[in-house]
């Protein structure tokens, strides 16, 4: 059974923009675009950083709309950490509105990005059609929404998470040289814990029979998990939750699920459950639980930090598949 040990919690994250006005030992004011990056930042920065998070627990960055309080947080920040890969569509206008002088750091720098599932889908179709430009007669089903070239959900690979952490440590070192030894030590300790986590994850997936490794989630958030650990994910919504799946998309998915014999279907903490409930009803596959895709849970929830999130997701999937 997959290890579900929890690690000690850390100081609380501020989630509503702005920084605490009370006296603080913090050397750096940091704004993290969403809860997972905030968790990495807290593990690297410890007491030397005061973190404000724009998209908090259970929040959906794909559809987040920034507010003046967020601009105020950016204005007061020393370092702003963003995922990049077009995950935070709101960020450029928020940076402009804030007039911030902070360093804005893309923490995905150095990872090998995967193409977004829609990009791959379109490329395959163009090849099959035998021509470059025409899509006549093909029900593309993706009109009316935009997606980036790359899948932004890189944190779903622990290997990538280690790169995130290293980038954050480098950013903090740059902004606060006096604290660099602390940041470096903290990041190395945390990366060691991530290494152990990854070993456990691989073992857990290995324990799942090969013919049962297909599951359904709400949106294409787990491409890096699939690439790294070999579980196959299919989803009605694409890389972003912003565009609602069309009826044709859903029907196609239901056919695919029946054909590919998916083992389990999961809700996500950030998405509306109705679509997954519909697919569950039509395919007869029971909903196996909720996965944490693009955001941590609240502090009382089972995924309030990245390591717990990853363990909880793998545990939930393993239990649902083996129980199916």
């Amino acid at each position: 059974m997959f290890n579900t040990l929890r690690f000690a919690t850390y100081a609380s994250l501020l989630t509503l923009g702005g920084f605490a006005s009370s006296a603080s030992a913090a050397e750096l004011k940091v704004v993290a675009s969403f809860s997972i990056i905030a968790d990495f930042a807290k593990n690297v920065g410890g007491d030397r950083v005061e973190i404000s998070t724009l998209v908090g627990p259970d929040g959906d960055a794909h559809v987040y709309e920034p507010r003046p309080a967020d601009a105020a947080a950016l204005e007061g920040a020393d370092v702003v950490l963003v995922n990049g890969l077009q995950f935070e569509g709101f960020m450029s206008r928020l940076i402009e509105a804030s007039g911030t002088k902070a360093s804005v750091v893309e923490v995905t720098k150095g990872i090998e990005p995967l193409k977004s599932a829609e990009e791959e889908h379109e490329a395959v179709e163009k090849t099959e059609a035998g021509h470059d430009h025409e899509e006549a007669g093909h029900d593309h089903g993706h009109e009316g929404h935009h997606h980036g070239e790359f899948d932004p959900h890189a944190w779903q690979s622990i290997h990538n998470a280690e790169i995130y952490v290293k980038n954050i440590a480098d950013a903090f070192c740059e902004a606060d040289k006096a604290g660099c030894a602390t940041y470096t030590a903290n990041s190395e300790a945390y990366i060691a814990r991530l290494g152990k986590l990854e070993t456990e994850v691989k073992a857990a997936i290995e324990a799942i029979p090969a013919d049962k490794r297909t599951v359904i989630t709400s949106h294409d958030a787990f491409g890096y998990f699939e690439h790294e650990y070999g579980l196959r994910f299919i989803a009605p919504e694409g890389i972003s939750t912003e565009a609602e799946a069309s009826a044709a998309d859903v029907a196609k998915l239901i056919d695919q699920v029946k054909h590919d014999k998916a083992s389990a279907i999961f809700l996500e903490n950030i998405t509306n459950p109705r679509l997954i409930e519909q697919i569950s009803t039509e395919t007869g596959i029971r909903i196996g639980g909720t996965l944490y895709s693009d955001a941590l849970s609240g502090r009382e929830g089972p995924a309030s930090n990245y390591i717990d999130m990853f363990r909880y997701n793998v545990n939930t999937m393993q239990a649902a598949i083996l129980g199916s």
Partner: peptide, 18 residues
């Protein structure tokens, strides 16, 4: 793991406002 991380390019993208 350390060797891997050392091999990762150290440069970060600092995106200037604007």
């Amino acid at each position: 793991r350390n060797r891997l991380l050392a091999a990762v390019a150290a440069s970060l993208v600092f995106i200037a406002p604007g």
